[in-house]
Amino acid sequence: MTIPVTTKQKELLTFRLSDQEYALDIMTVREIRGWTRATPMPLAPSFMRGVINLRGTVLPIMDLAERLGLPEADQGERNVIVVVQLNGSTIGLLVNSVSDIITRDADELQTPPDATVQDDRNVIDAITLLNDRMIRVLNVSKVVVPPESDAA
């Protein structure tokens, strides 16, 4: 669970999820778009909000707060979808609001304390500080787990 040392600096997109601040690697972000109503996917886990039309392709939407087990924040006007691309598949992450883009050196990113790094459910790669507020850097590929691969 280390941050690659080869990349000296990392650009991170920070966003809010029910009063907590998170960040993810900007290189995975394709675009940010406003909230539109998603078509619910039947029998999907509750954190899957459904699918939307992204310029002709069908994009699945994941409610990130719900996925991380955070209390549900009210669906405000500022809710946005962060479209990320991972291993060839694209997914939209619903967040409460996007805050900023920050640049961090590798040594400014601290590995989270061991207590939280026990199993696969750990989705935080690192933590960093911004104006004394803690920002959690998400490991997106761990957040987006494909469904049990029996859906052939």
């Binding site: 109503r37 996917m41 029998l43 999907a44 899957m48 699918v51």
Partner: peptide, 21 residues
């Protein structure tokens, strides 16, 4: 695709005239 959590019974999707899926 897989990340959509496609359930049994749903074959695919389409986009309607109002832009919804």
């Amino acid at each position: 695709d897989d990340s959509c959590h496609r359930p049994p019974g749903i074959a695919a999707a389409t986009i309607l005239g109002d832009g919804r899926v």
